Amino acid sequence: MAGRIHATAIIAPGAELAEDVEVGAYSIIGPNVSIGPGTTVGPHCIIDGHTRIGANNLFYRYCSIGGMPQDKKYRGEPTRLEIGDGNTVREYVTINTGTTQDVGVTRLGDDNWIMAYVHIAHDCQIGSHTIFANSVQLAGHVVIGDWVILGGISAVHQFVHIGAHSMIGGASAIRQDIPPYIIGAGDPFRPVGINSEGLQRRGYDAETISAIKEAYKLLYRRNLKIDEAAAAMRALQKERPAASQAIDLLASFLERPGRGIVR
């Protein structure tokens, strides 16, 4: 272990690091941190708080991970941060722990690519296989589904949900929920279609993509209310059984309570 920890790094008593974890120069690991095998912490990083990190992650230089939430109601409660496996976290990324006003934990799944200067605030719930380009800013309590791509300098309002497989262009301002599969950009954000190219790359067949396009038209082209569009999608599930699971992802998103969706 000692050969993988730079002589200038500070590892607090109580920290739990797998045998092959590497820690670079001048980095600090707090006493309530657990780091899994194959993970590399670059130089000048701080990882503190009640933070659990999985295997094979890379934290590039100057990250601040597990800091206390930027919430004036926070009173030092032992809230948590949980990070999965295989994530890449680049320069100056900040990820905070949760608050007792929510679930008490911020989560980041597996195989996420988090570019420089990204901020992930308290109680955010991030799925897997996402890409956040430079300077993406997430307010507290944001939920991001699997395979979402967020363009650089985009900002997401607190409590917003972004559905799986969505693709958001750079410099977008997200103030309402974005359903799964949507592609769009802008301030305010404007949806322009579904992320067909991304779905193809992930193995979705032509029949399923066609059904998702039909569901998109129900929501954005037929002048239906949200509950009417969801009901129409449930009927579409019966007509297109091979795509039932894909349509269900979209219909279920519309049926949940939220901030209203982008239109």
Rank of each mutant, 00 (worst) to 15 (best):
S128Q: 12
S128T: 10
S64A: 14
Q101V: 02
I120S: 01
Q101G: 14
L58H: 09
G84I: 05
G98I: 01
R75S: 15
F59Q: 02
I65T: 03
A121E: 02
C124Y: 02
M68L: 15
S128G: 14
Y92I: 08
G127E: 03
V105C: 09
D111H: 14
G86Y: 03
T97C: 15
T106A: 09
K73M: 14
E91T: 13
E82N: 06
G76M: 14
A121K: 00
P69E: 02
Q125H: 12
T106C: 11
E77T: 13
S64R: 15
L81M: 05
Y74L: 12
A116W: 01
I83D: 01
Y92M: 14
N56Y: 11
Y92E: 06
A116P: 05
G127P: 07
D85G: 10
W113Q: 07
V89T: 04
N96Y: 04
I65C: 02
F59K: 00
L81Q: 01
E82L: 15
P78V: 09
P78S: 08
G109S: 13
T79R: 03
G84R: 01
T97Y: 02
G76Q: 12
D102F: 13
G76K: 11
Q70D: 12
N96G: 04
A55E: 11
H119G: 04
V103Q: 04
N87Y: 07
V118C: 13
N112L: 12
T106G: 06
E82Y: 09
H119I: 06
R80G: 00
V89R: 00
S64C: 14
N96V: 02
Y117L: 13
D111E: 13
Y74C: 08
E82W: 07
E91S: 11
D102T: 08
P78N: 15
P78T: 12
D111Y: 11
A121R: 00
M115I: 09
R90Q: 07
I120K: 00
W113D: 06
L58P: 00
G104N: 07
C63Y: 00
I126A: 08
R75M: 13
V105M: 11
G127C: 05
I65Y: 03
Y74M: 12
T79V: 15
L58Q: 08
I126L: 12
D111N: 15
V89A: 08
K72I: 15
I120C: 03
V89S: 01
